[in-house]
Design a binder for these strands. Structure first.
Lengths: 192, 192, 192, 192
DNA sequence: TATGAATGAGTCTTCATTCAT
DNA sequence: AATGAATGAAGACTCATTCAT
């Protein structure tokens, strides 16, 4: 049955996501995933033929949530911006199930095969959303923005920089806050 | 003689650096390095006992150059800033021997063992240098900077973000230029 | 199923015992055992992780038989003694599956880790059984024994000496017989 | 020069003997010996081509001492016997440079090649000496011995049994004393 | 579907042995 | 004589992948 299969497939993706979060992409073997799922080696092969395939499905499984849930029609631009940054902050600092490094390892490993499109699209989408928020806020007089695209792009680079730092050299919540406040100050007044 | 050993050791480090640049950290085996060096398996073990050991030596071998070569006493702050950014741009875009991803993979893999200190120090150093340049420029009236530390930190995060992007989703020179110009505009007038 | 696994495990133990008998303990590699069993390298690792582990299981597999099969309540003490010595003679002279040297090599290799307990127990048990036989025979007037424990201990040392000789410098059946007869003469009349 | 060579050769044999005493025969590599001697790999090969060759020379180097030093013409048979047993006791219990197990491992490894002759000869010699002592004592009335050869053979087997036990399952000095006293009681009066 | 035993290829690591110096 | 770098073969161990059940 498809429903049964889907449940198992979902289980695999969830457990695999935990594994990828903990060990990155390259350090993960089929065996690791089999053990994390508590199923048999052969059992996993019924659903997936390789770590790569699983990882790609894990990514598809995650993506959906974050950005699409922002409703651009509602509320003030300031609220939208704060929501956007709060979400990013959460992602920067989250310990469990953080796929950032796995993501970049995967993209780096598959660079030549153009498999990094997903990551690229995600980034472009983030820039776009941020740009829209800034444009809206600019029109409504909430923000003072000269070149919304440039600002959005810069912010997304810096946020990505923080994400990587958080997973490698470490970063404190205070530092993230400071940086986010600094970003906002560039186009609005922030009370601290 | 030590000179002979050192030459071989240097050869290993150079060839290994190329391998790490191409395949990252985790995907590299002793065999890869052996083959890149054109020596025997046993031969490599005379000098190094593990990929980790080699990678750490590769890092030590690289580090020295970059930052210390900036002479803070000379020239105008604008020149210093341009030199700093030009160097960063070169590193962001360089294809050969780019250890960025290997670096982050290594730091992520060894996070718990505190092996990421080197990366942390490098970042802190970059922030410090940039901050000094900004402070000098601020004093001389070349820049208009409110909080030099915040600006420097933000720039380094964004630069790191670009470095990672360049190695994964890809980035064009034009985009890098735009971003760097945007950064500078925040505290000085830039003619395009 | 466990029965299938057990069969394979039993096969491994039997083939491994032959290998140990022929090559001792230290000279045996996983590869030797793999080849003797006619299975794959990986296949062996499913059941055992090291030569040591296999050897310990081989010992456990062997032990059981020998001594417990002597029924101290039956027959005359002379019969018991003869049975005991016949068994020992068989073990001294047996060519196939003789684990004596492997046993001692193992005990020597693991001396510091106290892994020789098994060998020690086996020896103590032999002394004890022999002592019991001698005591019984002494009570019944079949033997003339002053200090049964001393006699038993001496006999077991000499038997072990013969076992080692048989595996190294060689020993003829005639010599073994002579020695066993000499032992018996010390506390009973032996017709030759 | 031969004298220089001989000194080095002697150094190798002495250091190698320590290694064999500690690790047996089979567990010893050329590398172990090289390191114990503090010479270079190539340097060892000038003198010896294999572990086997070294071990054989170590044996030749040791043998000489023990038995030949007993002067059969002197003193009483009791004194000779006590001297003989004292020497054996010393060898049974000695910790440093005890080659017993290496000896047996070697003999077992080379069984088919008839390399165990040395061990065989040593044993036969011991039996012979002991037999002579017993015969002399018998003639002088110090001992009451029926079949000196049988007694001597038995004693040598038991002594060898103790030697092996000492190196594997362990043996206390008290136990050795008891056993030796028991042996003597069989043909003479022993005050305890 | 699901299991897990089995296989074999790939990598790691250690050493005996050689050889230029 | 002596050194120690270098080689390559041998053995250990792990995993992706298959397959009978």
């Amino acid at each position: 049955m498809s429903s049964k299969s889907d449940a198992k497939r979902q289980l695999i993706l969830e457990k695999a996501a935990e594994v990828f979060a903990g060990r990155g992409y390259r350090n993960v073997t089929m065996k690791d995933i089999v053990e994390a799922c508590g199923i048999s080696r052969g059992g996993l092969y019924i659903y997936y033929d390789s770590v790569e395939e699983i990882f790609e499905d894990v990514l598809d499984n995650e993506d959906s949530a974050d950005l699409s849930s922002i409703d651009l029609t509602s509320a003030s631009s300031v609220d939208l911006l704060l929501y956007f940054l709060k979400e990013e902050k959460k992602e920067i600092l989250k310990k469990k199930n953080n796929l950032t490094m796995a993501y970049y390892e995967y993209a780096f490993a598959c660079k030549c095969e153009g498999k990094a499109d997903k990551a690229k699209k995600k980034m472009d989408q983030e820039v776009l959303i941020l740009q829209k928020i800034l444009d809206r806020g600019s029109e409504s007089g909430e923000f003072v923005v000269d070149d919304a695209k440039a600002v959005a792009t810069d912010m997304v680079y810096a946020i990505n920089g923080m994400k990587v730092c958080a997973q490698t050299v470490g970063i404190t919540e205070k530092k993230v806050d400071k940086e986010l406040v600094y970003m906002m100050r560039r186009f609005m007044e922030v009370e601290e």
